[in-house]
Design a protein around this nucleic acid. Structure first.
Lengths: 130, 130
DNA sequence: CTTAGTGCAAACTGTTTGCAGAGGG
DNA sequence: CCCTCTGCAAACAGTTTGCACTAAG
């Protein structure tokens, strides 16, 4: 666990957000100005391999990283591409592991709610007025 | 509707798969050797804007395109990154449009089952034996 | 010491765009 | 004709990698 790895992890956690690699890079640079973007990528990769953080491959082109590795779903703003955690009862939709669908062996699922976040909704409303 | 657009659409439908832009490009090239990848991208964009096809932004880096625009979910092979359609009862998991979660206005959801496809499962089994 | 980790730059992959010419309506 | 669409090449964004150097154990 190197210094840069520690700071990367710490900043991701501190942010409370689902940052992209270079969003995180911008934050870390304030603490460690000589760090390189490649290091951020490499450490995010390592950390998610080890299960310390989670790599999200959701809509949009950039990967995002989640400090919260417990099982949960995400909610995604179609307008600003922000991602938030959301707790949904996993039993609700009748999901169970190790079922088989169309010959596939199912090991899990990814559910994203899609919508408009409060910030964008507010911005839209203001724009409408003017 | 140009000639190339027609062939692109037709090949996507004929494939019965969720092709990536350049997977489709390879197929179309056999019919129309001088077509350019940019044209494929532009037409896939146009077609999905018009709602003739659907653009999938799922796990992995490449976008995939779906000839089937009706509402349905997807099943994704973690090993070969193939995507298939799957019909799941959307009522099952208690989803309803226009609910509000954590201040978000929810407009829909994307659900991907994740697992191992029959082809990969078979390949794995054979590898195990040897 | 020795090995994993770093910074930098250059490579790579997937996608988009500017432009001049071609082709359909 | 006009205007959209094309092919090509070059630009772009996000990510990865080769290399020589550094630093942690």
């Amino acid at each position: 666990m190197t210094n840069q790895r520690e700071i990367i992890l710490q900043e991701l956690r501190k942010s409370g957000k689902h940052l992209t690699a270079d969003g995180l890079y911008e934050r870390v640079k304030k603490i460690m100005p000589r760090i390189s973007l490649a290091t951020v990528y490499r450490n995010l990769e390592t950390l998610s391999d080890k299960g310390v953080i989670a790599k999200l491959e959701i809509s949009g082109r950039q990967k995002r990283f989640d400090y919260d590795v417990s099982e949960h779903d995400h909610i995604y703003c179609v307008q600003c591409h922000k991602v938030d955690n959301v707790e949904l009862d996993r039993e609700l939709f009748g999901y169970s592991a190790d079922i088989s669908v169309q010959g596939y062996k199912i090991t899990g699922y990814r559910l994203q709610l899609v919508g408009i976040c409060p910030v964008c909704a507010k911005r839209n409303k203001e724009k409408e007025k003017s």
